[in-house]
């Protein structure tokens, strides 16, 4: 059975920062835009977590907005 398409995500590599993750995951965007978009798509990390923005190895980090 073919799986339906779902929203793309990545997981942080050890000691990875948002900057490096954004550059790795969205090389098609300029870095500042990629960072702002990734923050807005991942509020579980960048809003609700304490400390905010702490990237964890097990995280699902979306690299695109919700799918149509």
């Amino acid at each position: 059975m073919t799986l339906s398409q779902q929203r793309r995500f990545t997981t942080p590599e050890p000691d990875e920062t948002l900057d490096s993750l954004a550059a790795r995951a969205r090389p098609d965007l300029d870095l500042a835009t990629a960072i702002e978009l990734i923050r807005g798509w991942n509020l579980h990390i960048f809003l609700m977590r304490r400390p905010r923005g702490l990237l964890l190895g097990g995280d699902v980090v979306f690299i695109e907005p919700p799918l149509i």
Binding site: E13, P14, R50, L56, G57, G58
Partner: peptide, 10 residues
């Protein structure tokens, strides 16, 4: 603070 399991890589 996140519990230890959350620091694990896949």
């Amino acid at each position: 603070r996140p519990v230890p399991s959350r620091f694990a890589q896949f």
